[in-house]
């Protein structure tokens, strides 16, 4: 009885926090259907902003910039980050620590300081624009990749790789056939984390972009004083719904795999127990 009451209370608390997290999102979704340019008046239901969205070249351009930037920076950061993690992992304890301190700098530094420092440096050798923003995004993305690959590297069973090398596989073959499959979970989550961080970033992009280039974030920031174009609400609602659907699918597939895995682990565990009794 007490347990049931506790369960009920904890569920209520989760619901309250979720309410807090989702209120602004409901507001934005409602606004995307609001037939009025004012933010406080409800002018009836409309789909105009969704139609206008596909006609608005500026928004389309910013969306494409945002997506290309996120994809390119996440991809390059993953390549540099994974090879970096492999190398750092093989270093002596002292060098490992030094490298991890440097890896932590972009993560812990205030965004505004990172953005300004990069901007002050970039103006010495490249014009501020897409290129400089891409370099900046790669810079703050690499640590996320390293942080998600490193724990897996530490857990990985290296003997399998060494066995493959002993049996004549060269380093490259061994890496792609043995190591990478074991690290794949970390690599993928690192890539998606980097992708998300890049899409979500405003401050660093703001300082390194120069004139002429706009991501969705910087475009929205520029519109605050003039008033946000309602098409922006429509676009965010669409992005939100697409991600929601994608993640639901991934989650569903993941849950099914997990069930399979759990069965496998249970079987393994009981095997291990038998070995112990032997």
């Amino acid at each position: 009885m007490v347990e049931k009451l506790k369960d009920l209370m904890s569920r209520c608390y989760i619901a309250l926090i979720l309410l807090f997290l989702y209120i602004p999102i409901f507001v934005l979704i409602v606004l995307s259907f609001n037939n009025s340019r004012s933010r406080v008046v409800w002018g009836g239901f409309t789909l105009d902003w969704y139609r206008g969205l596909f006609a608005n070249a500026q928004i389309r351009e910013a969306l494409i910039t945002t997506l290309v930037l996120a994809f390119a920076s996440a991809l390059i950061a993953t390549i540099i980050g994974v090879s970096g993690a492999l190398g750092i992992h093989a270093m002596s304890r002292r060098n490992y620590r030094i490298m991890m301190i440097f890896t932590n700098i972009p993560m812990l530094n205030a965004d505004i300081v990172t953005g300004i420092a990069l901007m002050l440096w970039f103006i010495h050798f490249i014009p501020l624009g897409f290129g400089s923003v891409l370099l900046a995004h790669i810079t703050f993305n690499i640590p996320y990749v390293i942080m998600s690959v490193m724990p897996q590297l530490q857990r990985m069973n290296i003997s399998i790789y060494e066995a493959a090398r002993d049996l004549g596989a060269n380093a490259l073959y061994g890496f792609f056939k043995i190591m990478l499959p074991q690290l794949m979970g970390g690599v993928l989550s690192g890539f998606f984390m980097a992708f998300t961080m890049s899409i979500d970033d405003f401050v660093i992009t703001y300082f390194t972009k120069g004139a002429g280039v706009n991501t969705l974030s910087t475009m929205i920031y520029g519109e605050i004083r003039k008033g946000i174009k309602p098409e922006m609400y429509a676009l965010s609602t669409l992005i939100f719904l697409v991600v929601l659907c994608l993640l639901l699918v991934v989650n569903h597939v993941g849950a099914r795999n997990e069930k399979k895995n759990r069965k496998y682990y249970l079987a393994q565990e009981s095997n291990e127990r038998e070995e112990f009794t032997l």
Binding site: Y22, L28, I199, S217, I228, S236, I239, F240, L244
Partner: peptide, 26 residues
């Protein structure tokens, strides 16, 4: 648990400036 975690992270996919603007309206 996995689902709850996913629901907690999801709001990050709405642009953060827009979410703050929504708070301004609220």
């Amino acid at each position: 648990r996995g689902f709850a975690l996913f629901i907690v992270i999801l709001p990050m996919w709405m642009n953060f400036i827009l979410r703050i603007l929504a708070w301004q309206m609220i």
